[in-house]
Amino acid sequence: MTYKLILNGKTLKGETTTEAVDAATAEKVFKQYANDNGVDGEWTYDDATKTFTVTE
């Protein structure tokens, strides 16, 4: 399945996607991606759209 991440960081905004077997796996990938890019904030997940959002 394809999962999407929306980044609403103070210095980085954008979107990315990943292929993962489940939401938990996608979340690990996205949290590492956000961490690597210096984005740390509040996370939400919408199962209907398979979209994670992180907002600083």
Rank of each mutant, 00 (worst) to 15 (best):
L7V: 14
N35L: 14
Y45H: 02
D22R: 03
G38K: 07
G41Q: 02
E19T: 14
T25Q: 13
T18A: 08
K4C: 06
Y45I: 02
A24Q: 12
D22C: 05
N35R: 15
K50Q: 10
K10Y: 11
Y3R: 01
K28H: 09
T44V: 11
N37G: 05
V29G: 04
L12V: 13
T17V: 10
W43V: 02
K28Q: 12
T53S: 06
Y45E: 01
F52R: 00
T16I: 15
V54M: 05
N37K: 14
E42M: 12
F30G: 00
K28V: 10
D40T: 14
E56P: 05
E56A: 07
T53V: 09
T51P: 00
T18F: 11
T55H: 08
T49F: 05
A20W: 02
V29A: 10
N8G: 04
A48R: 10
A34T: 05
W43Y: 02
V29Q: 08
G9W: 06
E15L: 10
N35T: 13
K28S: 09
G14W: 15
E56S: 09
T44G: 07
T2G: 05
T51V: 06
T53C: 07
K10G: 07
N35V: 14
W43Q: 00
M1Q: 14
I6L: 07
N35Y: 15
E15Q: 12
T18M: 10
T17W: 13
T2P: 06
A23C: 11
A20S: 06
T53I: 08
V29Y: 15
T2Y: 09
Y33I: 07
D46V: 05
E19M: 14
V29R: 10
V29H: 11
M1Y: 15
A48Q: 12
D47Q: 09
T18D: 03
T17E: 09
T44F: 10
G38V: 03
G38W: 05
A24Y: 11
T11M: 11
D22I: 03
A26W: 01
L5E: 00
Y45T: 01
Q32T: 08
G41P: 01
A24L: 12
T44P: 00
E42L: 11
T16K: 11
F52P: 00
K31N: 04
T49H: 06
N8A: 08
T18Q: 05
I6V: 09
T17K: 08
Y3I: 01
I6H: 05
T51W: 02
T2A: 07
T2I: 15
K13S: 10
L5Y: 02
A26P: 01
D36L: 13
T55A: 05
T51E: 04
G14T: 14
A34D: 00
T44E: 10
T11A: 11
K4W: 11
V54R: 01
D40M: 14
T51S: 05
L7C: 07
D47K: 10
F30K: 00
D40C: 12
E19A: 08
L12S: 08
T44D: 09
D36W: 08
E27F: 15
I6Q: 05
V21D: 11
T49Y: 05
K31P: 00
E15T: 11
E15M: 13
E42Y: 14
T11F: 14
T44I: 09
K50M: 12
K13G: 05
G9F: 14
V39Y: 07
T51H: 03
E19Q: 14
T53A: 05
G38E: 06
K13T: 09
D46Q: 05
K4S: 06
F30Y: 02
M1S: 14
D22S: 07
Q32K: 15
A34Y: 03
V39E: 03
N37D: 03
T17L: 09
E19I: 15
K50A: 06
L7S: 03
D40S: 15
E42G: 05
D40V: 14
V21E: 12
L12R: 07
N35H: 14
D47H: 09
A26L: 01
K4A: 05
Y33P: 00
D47A: 14
Y3A: 01
K50G: 05
E42T: 13
D22H: 04
M1R: 10
Y45R: 02
G41C: 02
T2W: 13
L12E: 06
K50E: 03
L5R: 00
K50I: 03
W43C: 02
L7G: 02
V21G: 09
A23V: 12
Y3V: 01
K4E: 03
T11E: 10
A34R: 01
L12I: 14
V21A: 14
T53K: 06
K50N: 09
E56N: 05
A26D: 00
K31Q: 10
G9S: 11
T44L: 08
L7P: 01
W43T: 01
N35E: 12
D36A: 13
T49V: 06
K50F: 11
L12Q: 11
V54D: 01
T55Q: 07
D47G: 09
T55I: 08
N37W: 14
A48M: 12
G14Y: 13
G38D: 08
E19R: 11
D40N: 13
T44R: 09
G41Y: 03
T25C: 07
T18R: 05
T53W: 08
D36R: 10
Q32V: 10
D46W: 04
N37F: 15
I6F: 06
D22T: 05
I6K: 06
T51Q: 04
A20K: 03
K13L: 07
V29K: 08
A23W: 14
T16H: 15
Y3L: 01
V29F: 15
M1T: 14
G41M: 03
V54Q: 01
Y45K: 01
T11R: 09
F52M: 02
T51F: 03
N35P: 02
V54A: 03
D22P: 01
L5N: 00
K50T: 04
T11C: 13
V54C: 09
D47M: 10
N37V: 15
T49D: 04
G9M: 12
A20G: 04
E19H: 12
E42D: 12
L12D: 05
L7E: 01
T2D: 05
K31S: 04
D36M: 13
N8P: 03
D36C: 08
D47C: 07
E27G: 07
E27V: 06
A24K: 11
L12H: 13
N35D: 08
M1E: 13
T16D: 03
V39I: 15
T2R: 14
A48V: 12
E19F: 15
T16W: 15
V39S: 03
M1C: 11
A20E: 04
T49R: 06
V29D: 04
Y33D: 01
E56I: 09
A24V: 11
T17N: 06
F30A: 01
G9H: 08
D40F: 15
N8L: 14
M1V: 14
T55M: 06
K10W: 11
D46I: 05
G9T: 15
K10N: 10
T17P: 02
N37Y: 15
Y3N: 01
V21T: 13
G9D: 03
W43L: 03
N8K: 13
K50H: 13
E19D: 09
D36V: 11
T53Q: 06
D47R: 08
K31L: 07
K10I: 14
A24T: 09
Q32Y: 06
D46K: 04
D36G: 06
A24P: 09
W43H: 01
M1K: 12
E42R: 09
D40Q: 14
T55Y: 08
T11Q: 09
D46T: 05
T53G: 03
A23Y: 14
G38M: 07
V21Q: 10
K10T: 10
Y33M: 05
T11V: 12
Y45L: 02
K4V: 12
D47I: 10
T11I: 12
W43K: 00
V21S: 12
A34E: 01
K31C: 05
V54W: 03
T17S: 11
E15R: 09
A24D: 10
T2Q: 10
D40W: 15
T49K: 07
K50L: 13
G9K: 04
